[in-house]
């Protein structure tokens, strides 16, 4: 170390800085908030109309060419199925992009059915967490993904606040993330509603422009006072979602997480993302500076021992 000249030291520092700058030109995209494409489509799910016929599940299975289920779609005893010590109901997975669950909230004579699928967030957590940029929020409103680049880190499943994406764990050589894509490839991009909406016999699912759906939702709440909870789930939740819900029972009693913030998930991460360019810019000068300060000091080594003794005493007092 003592043999290092100033020129060599500078050259090494520059090389180090260059290496780290090349390594990390990544983070600057964190700024700004995105509230969704203005003409994007959505679906309004009215839980008061759903009768739990599961025809949407069947239509989805057919449209997306998913494997045949273990139990047929007209088997209603599946609503009694629970998992993990009775705490969990069914959830979407690699074989079913949408599932319907039954709830019996207190004070309600009739059971309430809730369809679960990807809610197609305006600013999706899965998209912002993906390190290969596999996800896309299309202008039509769908959150789709490119399975040709999916590495299988499953960060999107960690990030999704609705626990939607599933993973094809059973595949050894081509496992990928699987979730509802709003029938984007086959229907949505041609202006058609997704298969589940098309088949619904109760008109529990309404397809339309998201901004119109909000009007329709508010109208229903106003025309039927007492029938609905005065809230459209998905209007503001997590920055807004393309799929939204109306319910007669409080949302947390029918399987929704009512505690989610109105901020998109990415806002939690922006604090950290903002520090990254600062660390990249400040650390090289700061630590080479420390080094110069430590090196140029006369009698550095002797001084060390004094400092150490002092530290020893301080350390003992803790």
């Amino acid at each position: 170390m003592s043999g290092i000249s100033r020129r060599r030291f500078l050259a090494a520092s520059v090389a180090g800085c260059a290496a780290t700058t090349l390594a990390g030109p990544k983070k600057a995209l964190a700024a700004g908030a995105f509230t969704g494409y203005s003409d994007s489509m959505g679906v309004l799910v009215d839980l008061t109309r759903c009768i739990g016929c599961r025809s949407c599940e069947a239509a989805c299975n057919k449209e997306q060419a998913l494997p045949a289920p273990d139990r047929p779609f007209n088997d209603m005893s599946i609503f009694d199925e629970t998992f993990h010590g009775g705490t969990q109901k069914r959830r979407p997975d690699e074989n079913a992009y949408t599932v319907v669950n039954r709830y019996e909230p207190e004070g309600s004579d009739e059971p309430i059915y809730r369809k679960v699928q990807c809610n197609h967030c305006n600013e999706p957590a899965c998209l912002t967490s993906c390190f290969v940029n596999a996800y896309t929020k299309t202008q039509e409103g769908a959150v789709i993904y490119n399975n040709k680049v999916c590495v299988g880190c499953r960060n999107c499943m960690i990030a999704c606040p609705f626990n939607v994406p599933g993973y094809s764990y059973s595949s050894a050589f081509d496992p990928i993330v699987k979730k509802c894509i709003f029938c984007h490839d086959t229907r949505l991009k041609n202006g058609l509603p997704p298969a589940c909406v098309d088949i619904c016999p109760q008109e529990a699912l309404t397809f339309g422009m998201r901004k119109d759906l909000l009007k329709i939702g508010n109208q229903r709440i106003q025309t039927h006072p007492g029938r609905y909870v005065d809230h459209i789930y998905g209007e503001k939740e997590l920055g807004g979602t393309s799929w939204m819900y109306l319910s007669s029972a409080p949302f947390d009693e029918v399987g929704f997480d009512a505690n989610v913030s109105n901020e998109p998930i990415i806002n939690n991460v922006k604090d950290f993302l903002g520090t990254v360019p600062m660390v990249l810019a400040i650390w090289p000068a700061m630590f080479t500076g420390f080094h110069l300060l430590a090196k140029k000091q006369a009698g550095h080594d002797n001084h060390d021992e004094k400092v150490e003794e002092q530290h020893g005493e301080e350390g003992g007092e803790q």
């Binding site: 990544k26 680049v149 880190c153």
Partner: peptide, 16 residues
């Protein structure tokens, strides 16, 4: 892939 094929520079995992 995150190095050569497809970049997701706004993701924390990309940085990791």
């Amino acid at each position: 892939y995150p190095m050569v094929v497809s970049f997701g520079p706004a993701a924390v995992l990309f940085l990791v």
